[in-house]
Design a protein around this nucleic acid. Structure first.
Length: 814
DNA sequence: GACCTGCTGCGGTATG
């Protein structure tokens, strides 16, 4: 019997809503037993597209005495689970259904958890990690036996990380417990939407599957904040504070503004500078980022929601989750480096259907305006980045095997079939599977002698953890997110403000003042792992820096930037941003050259610093890191010469104290893609890079124990422990899959081999243009400055160095 | 006194 959709329609009607076509489509597909993916933007009613059919079915098939949830809703962040809960309760009330909803995340109290065990909610909202914790509990098959659907919300967010792999594994298990299980995903628009569906639904794909596209276009208006004169914008820079005066009126003219910065330290600085510039905004603006305590963040979110704040300076921490009452204005400080991120942030404004999202782009240096133009183009052409799914992440698999061994145990032959049904491990060989089993039972060839790594034992063919201590420790370390080293910042009264990193703390002396969480704080002393502080009245202070991710320039952006430069080379600029920087482009043309699409620019110049080769692939700094090392290595192979290397998102520099035979090098094909892998391996210290990647892998695979909550193992110990494992495997078990994985992650994610290869292939078809500028060019200057700022050997201030450099080149301005 | 690189996300107190 098909459940009736009418109650849902009635409820929508009562609310004055007209269901979207995609919602009706999803309702129908769900009721016909399909699995699939719904592609819809936030604020389009995507939640109800699956929530309603789930609830309707729950009403139509009341289970007399249910022993488990009927459906599970997965959210990547806890804050989102509360919103889903509210939506579900609203729908249940509207439908007059006799159904229950529960949340199970790290925030859920022990009492509530026990209650959920005894009387499971019909709809359970949880995270991938909590789902695995449930798989680590005895009797989980009975608990999940009633399940008819799993919905993975924001699947695009999960898929690009190891959390996605974790999700795939959990689904493969649940699909065997309840064979009729429907798996649904909800995803924002990404470049590889079809693949996203395949990864979610597994191997082989279910016959009844469908991808539903909402096709709701959201108009976006981009406005770049430009100074009155092009000279005001520096050639190099990151902070963008020169345009502070232009921001204040925007804030004042709008009811609510979000100011996105790319780093936590910039958020701190912008917040303080704004208050300085416009003291009347005190109490009306706030700050939000990932190192600020949850309590403070929640307070800011609530104040914003209630309309009590005019502006919040934030990082990606406000990208997702908290569904605000419409924010009127968005300001993006510096390039977001990717189209999807820009769209996500723009979408925070004009939330009502049909409303225009407005976003201001605030450049931090002149050339960055090409990125604004590229974003404009991307939105016009509807280009969005892909999310690359992780495959063959053996660290996650190892963790999963122990998870199952902790609860009910597993039989290898059965489990292998399930594991192979995931996209991630569809290619796992028998040998690899056997190695993984060996690893969890004996610790593998290198660790056999240590009892600690014999986590799993085999009883009558069933793999189990029989040691309570091992089981407990394992449950404490489920998950794939490996945090950074940090210390807690507390007021003398004990109030917790947030966390900063150990190495920043080591630069502080008692009495030093620093900016944090929007306050000016004086460092008093250390107490255990806490940094004790008090309020300071001083106007200035140091600013903490954190070692976070590096936001690579997406390849979609790269390609569009090259197009924009090409337009400039033909003097065919169309975007306001490109028109604004015409003088800069003219100077680039005058001193060197503006490369067209079919050209590759190489600059060679001499200075008192030495001999510089500059190349501009516009592929992002990660790819440039590999390319620079490659070119340096190939030149040095024929000429004994050493280089110092610098790069940014646009190009890289090789600097030497002796002349560089660049023409000869180009002729001998230093930019060729032959022997790429071999040359890359020889040119970079891949062992060192892999060693760093291995830290996370060791942690996820459960080799290193991060400590008990509240008494974490110090990061230095974690680091050295994982290094130890790396070395041991390196020396005694070179085929260790976790070790090999570290090298693969370096090639795939750090050096982006695929992109690097594509870049070389492109360059092969381009005409190489070598110029010999007498002075640094607009393209080259920022790279040189970057090298200077990273030069830790000098105590000279960067600004002085830059000034000196300009004088050196006989340039008053730049 | 004046300087700015480096995002986000989860998990819990059943041990030693």
């Amino acid at each position: 019997m098909q459940p009736d959709v009418k109650p849902a329609l009635d409820w929508f009607e009562n609310k004055g809503w007209q269901p979207f076509a995609f919602q009706r489509e999803a309702w129908a597909a769900y009721q016909q037993g399909f699995s699939g993916l719904v592609n819809a933007p936030t604020g389009s009613g995507k939640t109800y597209s699956l929530l309603l059919p789930i609830l309707l079915e729950g009403m139509a098939h009341p289970a007399a005495k249910k022993a488990g949830p009927l459906a599970i809703w997965i959210t990547p962040i806890r804050a989102l689970s509360k919103e889903i809960h509210i939506s579900a309760m609203r729908a249940i009330e509207g439908l007059g259904a006799n159904l229950t909803v529960g949340i199970r995340t790290g925030d859920t109290s022990v009492r509530e958890r026990t209650r959920q065990q005894e009387r499971p909610p019909d709809l359970l909202i949880t995270t991938p990690e909590s789902l695995h914790l449930m798989l680590a509990q005895k009797n989980y098959p009975q608990f999940f036996a009633w399940l008819s659907a799993v919905v993975v919300d924001e699947w695009h967010e999960l898929m690009g990380s190891k959390r996605g792999v974790q999700m795939e594994l959990a689904l493969s298990r649940l699909k065997v417990i309840t064979p009729a299980l429907r798996v649904w995903g909800i995803s924002a628009t990404i470049g590889n939407l079809d693949q996203a569906a395949e990864v979610l639904l597994g191997v082989p794909l279910p016959e009844k599957r469908v991808t539903i596209r909402a096709n709701i276009q959201k108009p976006i208006a981009i406005h770049s904040i430009l100074p009155d004169e092009v000279e005001t914008l520096p050639w190099a820079g990151h902070l963008g504070i020169q345009l502070l005066q232009k921001v204040v009126p925007i804030i004042k003219a709008s009811n609510s503004t979000l100011i996105f910065t790319n780093t936590r330290s910039f958020a701190e600085i912008w917040y303080q500078k704004l208050l300085n510039e416009a003291p009347e905004l005190a109490g009306l603006i706030a700050m939000h980022h990932g190192s600020i305590s949850q309590e403070l963040r929640t307070w800011v979110e609530e104040q914003l929601y209630e309309g009590k704040l005019k502006a919040v300076v934030c990082t990606s921490s406000l990208d997702l989750g908290v569904d605000f009452r419409p924010v009127e204005t968005i300001i993006q400080v510096g390039s977001p480096k990717g189209v999807a991120r820009f769209l996500q942030r723009a979408g925070r404004s004009g939330h009502q259907p049909g409303a225009v999202s407005r976003i201001y782009f605030l450049p931090t240096h002149s050339l960055e305006l090409t990125e604004a133009a590229a974003l404009r183009e991307a939105i016009h052409r509807q280009v969005v980045e892909e999310r690359i799914p992780y495959v063959r992440s053996f660290d996650v698999l190892v963790q999963y095997l122990v998870t199952l061994a902790v609860s009910e145990g597993f039989r290898p032959a059965d489990l292998l079939r399930e594991v192979r049904s995931t996209f991630s491990f569809s290619s796992i060989s028998d040998d690899e599977w056997n190695w993984t089993l060996q690893f969890v039972t004996t610790g593998g060839a290198a660790l056999t002698a240590y009892n600690e790594y014999r986590k799993v034992v085999v009883e009558n063919g069933v793999y189990r953890v029989d040691n309570k201590r091992t089981a407990f420790r394992h449950r404490l370390s489920i998950g794939t997110i490996v945090g950074e080293q940090s210390m807690q910042v507390k007021m003398m009264t004990g109030k917790f403000l947030g966390s900063i990193e150990e190495y920043f703390v080591s630069s502080l002396h008692p009495g030093d003042v620093f900016w944090f969480a929007g306050r000016t704080l004086e460092f008093v002393r250390l107490k255990d792992m806490d940094v004790l502080v008090r309020k300071s009245k001083r106007k200035s202070g140091k600013v903490p820096s954190w070692q976070g991710g590096r936001m690579p320039l997406s390849s979609q952006m790269s390609a569009l930037i090259r197009e924009k430069i090409d337009e400039a080379s033909r003097q065919a600029e169309r975007d306001p941003e490109m028109q604004f920087i015409q003088p800069l482009m003219a100077l680039q043309r005058e001193r060197s050259h503006l490369p067209a699409m079919n050209e590759f620019l190489v600059e060679y110049l001499e200075s008192s610093e030495g001999y510089h080769v500059m190349m501009y692939p516009f592929e992002g700094r990660q790819v440039h890191e590999g390319l620079a090392a490659l070119v340096a290595h190939r030149i040095a192979r024929t000429h004994p010469i050493t280089f110092s290397i610098a790069m940014n998102d646009y190009g890289f520099e090789l600097l030497s104290d002796q002349p560089i035979p660049i023409e000869e090098a180009i002729e001998t094909n230093v930019l060729g893609s032959e022997d790429l892998l071999k040359d890359i391996q020889a040119s970079i210290n891949s062992t060192e890079m892999a060693r760093r990647k291995f830290r996370d892998i060791a942690s996820i695979a459960g080799l290193v124990f991060k400590g008990f909550p509240g008494q974490r193992v110090r990061d230095r110990h974690l680091q050295s422990n994982s290094q130890l494992f790396f070395d041991v495997f390196h020396d005694y078990e070179s085929h260790n899959l976790l070790l090999l994985q570290a090298y693969e992650e370096v090639m795939d994610f750090q050096l982006e081999e695929v992109r690097l290869r594509a870049a070389l292939e492109r360059i092969r078809h381009q005409k190489i243009v070598i110029t010999y500028p007498e002075k640094p060019t607009p393209f080259g200057f920022p790279i040189m400055v970057d090298r200077l700022s990273r030069d830790k050997l000098t105590s000279e201030r960067l600004e002085d160095r830059v000034k000196k450099m300009m004088v050196m080149w006989g340039d008053e301005k730049n």
